[in-house]
Write a protein that binds this DNA or RNA. Structure first.
Lengths: 173, 173
DNA sequence: TATTGTTATACTCTATAACTATA
DNA sequence: TATAGTTATAGAGTATAACAATA
């Protein structure tokens, strides 16, 4: 792996007109992050943004967002699930989920059929197209996960997953 | 700590009209998450959302968002920093940051003064009001961080911070 | 009355493009 | 020409409120 320092993009690498580096065009290495790096909230956000930016780029050509991937995966594992159950899982408003579901249905990736016993519910399911697309998306997602393993030492993935799960639960509501 | 299972909100606790629990009104415990829980990307997002929701509630009365807290902290530690350097840190577009800065300036929390040597730059700084407000916000942030420590065993905070930092760096671009 | 779901609306966060000013 | 910064605009993703259908 190349060097540890942030890549000197932009101003950093350019010719300097004076011997003492001018304060204007400050290098990243000169920046004081204060207590920020010691905060779990901060580091969690940075790591999540970085991974999210990366996977969004990778999934762009599939037309599926990371959130939609998660939703499709839940539908594959739980055919017939309804949107209220999904709101509890994702802690999203039913109106928000309704829009996501509409988007996936409009693209023919999922179907929504009224429940026979209780006609207030719609049973959600992957279509054939949805299943096929999900396979490709899952392959890309798991490629990224394997790239993560290149950064982690043996056992660290399991420890990290455990820690993250405990944080989620701590704020369960 | 109370039980490990997700709290049985909503449909779960209600009276059941039949002995065999109807599939409609599925409990969270019945849901199959597939491979989702084994993905770092997924768990990272869940943990980050949970922490973010919590801290947003806490900060609401201060009128400062988590992102603004981070920005104010950077300005306290680096008085005179300019917005281009901040875009490199946060990997945000300069237009995006321009809006955040305008918002903080309009509330009198930061000042923006043109640099004498190179008048293209604006040196950003906290105002007195900004400094006072930041103290209160930091207190709340650090309360949340201490709440995290109640969930973590000794040494786990350091290990988690290290793992998260390595993930951020892995996707540095 | 309560629950599932939709639609209208608005707010936040973000990027892209076009611009001004300064170098 | 290149860089710092602003503004206009648009697209995600989200919530709230009001509504319809069903129980």
């Amino acid at each position: 792996m190349p060097g540890n320092r942030p890549p000197g993009r932009g101003a950093a690498g350019k010719t300097m007109k004076s011997a003492t580096k001018s304060k204007v065009g400050r290098e990243l290495a000169d920046v004081d992050f204060g207590r920020l790096p010691s905060y779990i909230g901060y580091q969690l956000r940075q790591a999540q943004s970085a991974m999210f930016r990366d996977i969004s780029r990778t999934l762009r050509e599939t037309g599926v967002t990371p959130g939609e991937f998660s939703l499709l995966t839940m539908l594959r594992a739980n055919p017939g699930i309804n949107s209220i159950t999904l709101t509890r899982i994702y802690q999203l408003d039913k109106a928000t989920l309704s829009l996501s579901i509409k988007g996936l249905a409009k693209r023919g990736l999922i179907s929504s059929t009224r429940h026979a016993n209780d006609r207030r519910y719609y049973a959600l399911e992957l279509t054939g197209d949805g299943r096929v697309l999900l396979r490709g998306v899952t392959r890309r997602i798991e490629q990224q996960e394997r790239a993560m393993d290149a950064v982690l030492k043996p056992g660290e993935r399991a420890r990290l997953l455990d820690l993250l799960q405990r944080i989620s639960r701590a704020f369960d509501r």
